Structures are given as structure tokens and as C-alpha cells.
Simulated scan of single mutants.
Amino acid sequence: MIDPPTVPALERAFEVNVRLGPLADHGQTRAGHRRVIPITGGEISGGVQARILPGGADWQLVRGDGAIDIDSRYSARTPDGEMVYLQVTGLRTGPADVLDSLLKGENIAPARYYFRTVITIETSAARLRHLEDSIFIASCARDADAVRYTAYRIT
């Protein structure tokens, strides 16, 4: 008999705090209701130490029910000058009143909505190359001017 695949587990990997700039609402486009939120900075801590650089963004699509498809891309630099590129995709959804409050920039307890993402990483730094060989998922929280998340490596 062939052994079954192993059951994945979650291993805490790193924490992220992404600072956000003012939202640009593009309105209804052929792809849907497009919003672009600039990334102005932030920090990565825990298993990876780095400063998030300004210049990235979250290119969101707001669904008809108020849920948001997340597509964020940004770069970070470690204290040693190594570059790390993060691509974050996911979903934020919940009750209509909670989603409406989040869209207005209000601080809402993360337990009141569902905000999960998948993170993929690229880097040329040899000592961080292991990050490219893993899949990370995150449980996220949206603050008025930031997104915070803890990333977990799927084993």
C-alpha cells in the first residue's frame, strides 16, 4: 500500500503591519468595482525582519455583496539590504453592516469579519530563499490606515 499524503499543519512564520495611504476609488470598471489603496510603508517582524517600502498597492475588486477580492503587491528591505517581494491575494467578507463600516475606514473587531490571504514571496537573498519554497496563509485585520496579519507556513 502507498502511504497517504501527509496532513498539513500551520507553523507561525512572521507578522506584518502594512501602512496604507488614501484610497483611490475607480468606480465600476469592466472588471468590477475597482479600488486601489497605496502602500506607504510598514514592518515585517518575527521570522523575517524587514521594512516595507512605499510604492506597492492593493488592487481590490469589490463584489456586489460587498466582499472584497484582495490583490496586494509590495517590496520590503531587510536590515542587511536584502530585497523581499510579497504578493498577497485573498478575501475579506462578512455581514453587510460590518463590510460597510470597514469601507468607511472604521475600526472593527477582526472577529466580526473574515479576512484571509495567501502570501507568496520572491527574493534573491540566499539566506531567505527558503521563503520561496513555502506557501503562507494569513489571518488579517483591517485598521483605519493599516492592515495587520500573522503569516503561517503550511507544512
Results as ranks from 00 to 15, higher is better:
75 S>K: 13
70 I>T: 05
143 D>I: 03
12 R>M: 11
138 A>P: 04
95 P>D: 15
92 R>I: 05
38 P>A: 01
94 G>K: 00
150 T>A: 09
59 W>E: 12
68 I>T: 15
124 S>D: 14
49 Q>N: 11
63 R>T: 09
96 A>H: 08
95 P>G: 10
34 R>G: 00
42 G>F: 03
78 T>S: 11
52 I>F: 01
109 A>D: 15
130 H>A: 14
79 P>G: 06
149 Y>T: 08
88 V>T: 11
92 R>Q: 00
78 T>W: 00
96 A>F: 07
50 A>C: 06
148 R>H: 13
57 A>M: 08
11 E>F: 09
151 A>F: 02
103 L>P: 00
130 H>N: 09
84 V>N: 00
123 T>Y: 06
65 D>N: 12
14 F>I: 07
32 G>E: 08
64 G>S: 08
26 H>F: 15
130 H>V: 11
47 G>R: 04
108 I>S: 04
97 D>L: 09
22 P>Q: 15
87 Q>H: 10
32 G>D: 08
45 S>R: 14
141 A>S: 12
105 G>C: 09
70 I>R: 04
60 Q>Y: 04
111 A>I: 13
117 T>M: 08
31 A>T: 09
134 S>F: 07
12 R>K: 15
81 G>A: 06
86 L>Q: 08
85 Y>K: 10
112 R>T: 13
140 C>I: 07
139 S>V: 13
141 A>P: 00
8 P>A: 06
25 D>M: 02
82 E>L: 05
32 G>L: 04
78 T>F: 01
73 R>Y: 08
123 T>C: 04
53 L>D: 07
50 A>R: 05
99 L>V: 08
88 V>L: 09
118 V>I: 15
78 T>Y: 02
112 R>C: 04
31 A>V: 13
58 D>F: 01
150 T>V: 15
146 A>R: 15
16 V>G: 00
136 F>G: 03
23 L>Q: 10
130 H>R: 07
76 A>D: 07
39 I>N: 02
82 E>H: 10
13 A>M: 05
116 R>E: 10
74 Y>S: 06
38 P>Y: 05
107 N>S: 13
140 C>W: 03
66 G>E: 07
133 D>W: 13
81 G>L: 05
140 C>V: 07
84 V>M: 04
8 P>E: 10
126 A>T: 12
125 A>S: 14
9 A>E: 15
114 Y>R: 10
131 L>Q: 05
10 L>H: 03
84 V>D: 02
138 A>M: 09
147 V>A: 03
139 S>M: 11
20 L>R: 01
47 G>C: 04
86 L>V: 04
43 E>D: 15
24 A>L: 14
44 I>N: 02
115 F>K: 01
20 L>T: 03
26 H>G: 02
87 Q>T: 13
130 H>G: 08
62 V>L: 14
65 D>Q: 06
94 G>D: 04
87 Q>P: 00
111 A>N: 12
35 R>Q: 11
67 A>N: 03
29 T>G: 01
123 T>P: 06
48 V>Y: 02
61 L>C: 04
131 L>W: 05
106 E>N: 12
116 R>K: 11
73 R>T: 06
84 V>C: 01
69 D>W: 09
110 P>M: 10
54 P>N: 06
10 L>Y: 04
140 C>T: 10
22 P>G: 12
93 T>G: 12
81 G>H: 02
17 N>S: 14
14 F>N: 00
92 R>K: 01
120 T>D: 07
68 I>V: 15
55 G>C: 02
37 I>E: 02
17 N>P: 03
88 V>P: 01
76 A>N: 04
